[in-house]
Design a protein around this nucleic acid. Structure first.
Lengths: 229, 229
DNA sequence: TGACTATTTAATGTATACATTAACATATTC
DNA sequence: GAATATGTTAATGTATACATTAAATAGTCA
């Protein structure tokens, strides 16, 4: 049997990676809400693998701040308190405004400019149609593009980590917040500053944008007593 | 091996944590330079434990960007290129200047002000005595205090992660860089801005300080062709 | 010789075994 | 009945076993 030709097996940490992806997905999609508990053995049985890859996946998720591994009670999905949100937005504020500055410094390719503008336009049309879900997706796309184009891979990865942590809280506050009209204007202004190669303006505009967004979200969380979601 | 009547054990991830600490120490202290290779089995034998805790420690170190786990060649200590240093300093620039802003906003306790000033004073005396080692330690202490006092634990942890990654490169460039006179002045100015509760000034002063420091280090690395150390 | 294949080696990813011990339940004492 | 002591359970941390497969080596034929 000609099995020596090309087996096409290349993945190495197949199960560990799979467990990591599945668990992360469940957390981000809110399938497992904050506080959800799960035992290593349960997970292993459910995912059809042994405890070893589960443990390794949990270590990674713990490092990302998504779960907490408690000595005898298994893993617990971490919640986001108003204070957590404040911390996260302070970090996003400075990292993303640095990203905006860097993008303005290095300039955009035509392709990149098109994508950025497309994201802002999508935000506008979504807002005009009162479609908050779509708006949120376009907004997230904009922020991701920004850190993508800044050229600093570490920064990108840190920002994405923050995004993941704040993701569920953002989803939940989406309906509670006022119409994000000014967000769209802010983003246009940022793109504008980037296009005219003004790093300082890009940084400052985006910094103020993120600061306001963060303060608003924290206020909402506090007002609704969403201490840990 | 480990069943020979050990002391009353109470910690839970004793070996994993121990392996993590030991390996991290070796990397930070440059006992293992960039590029150093080690096999899981070797490490297990050397540290007197099985491969399991070693693996778990390596996963953590990999997430911190200190090592790379390569499919068949064991773990490899990651080096820092000039580009890496640039990325790290861009991140430090914005995170730390945010920290300075936050500290200025919330103000210092007497104790905190004393500690910050002590760090700057130590930097001055070390510089007067041409003791770069001591200067570097005081400088690091200053930066650590800043993120410590800002009240944002996530920010603190991210900054410390950057510090760890850049640590060896900083050690090496310490003798190659010009006398860090302006660093001390910058720090005094930052403390000053914090003491008079001027968040914007604190942020901007510290931002420029970090930016310059980063640019200088990158230049040194490039000039000396230290592509990966 | 040199490219190409078969064979061996060894490091890994995963599964499983096992001793430990925190958490819970039950029993005991006053 | 409350508090403490004792026993039981079960989840974990670690060790070990094992199958897989990338890399190294030897072997084969042009």
């Amino acid at each position: 049997m000609a099995n020596t030709k090309q087996k096409a097996v290349k993945a190495r940490r197949l199960f560990t990676d799979e467990a990591y992806e599945i668990l992360k997905r469940r957390i981000l999609d809110n399938e497992w809400p904050a506080g959800h508990l799960a035992l290593e053995q349960e997970l292993a049985a459910e995912l059809g693998m042994s405890r070893t890859p589960i443990r390794e996946a949990l270590i990674r998720l713990e490092k990302e701040g998504l779960v907490e591994v408690r000595p005898r009670h298994g893993m617990r999905v971490l919640g986001i308190s108003a204070e957590d949100m404040e911390e996260i937005y302070e970090i996003l504020t400075c990292l993303e405004s640095m990203a905006a500055e860097l993008v303005a410094k290095r300039g955009l390719t035509d392709q990149q400019r098109a994508e950025l503008n497309a994201a802002v336009n999508d935000m506008d049309t979504a807002l005009a149609q009162d479609n908050l879900e779509t708006w949120a997706k376009a907004d997230e796309r904009f922020h991701k593009l920004l850190v993508d184009y800044c050229g600093n891979r570490r920064l990108k990865s840190l920002v994405e980590g923050c995004f993941d942590q704040a993701h569920r809280a953002r989803l939940l506050t989406l309906k509670l917040r006022p119409k994000p009209t000014s967000s769209n204007e802010d983003h246009r202004a940022t793109v504008n500053a980037i296009e005219r190669r003004d790093p300082t303006a890009a940084r400052e505009i985006h910094r103020l944008h993120r600061m306001r967004a963060g303060e608003m979200l924290v206020e909402i969380l506090n007002k609704h007593g969403l201490s840990s979601l």
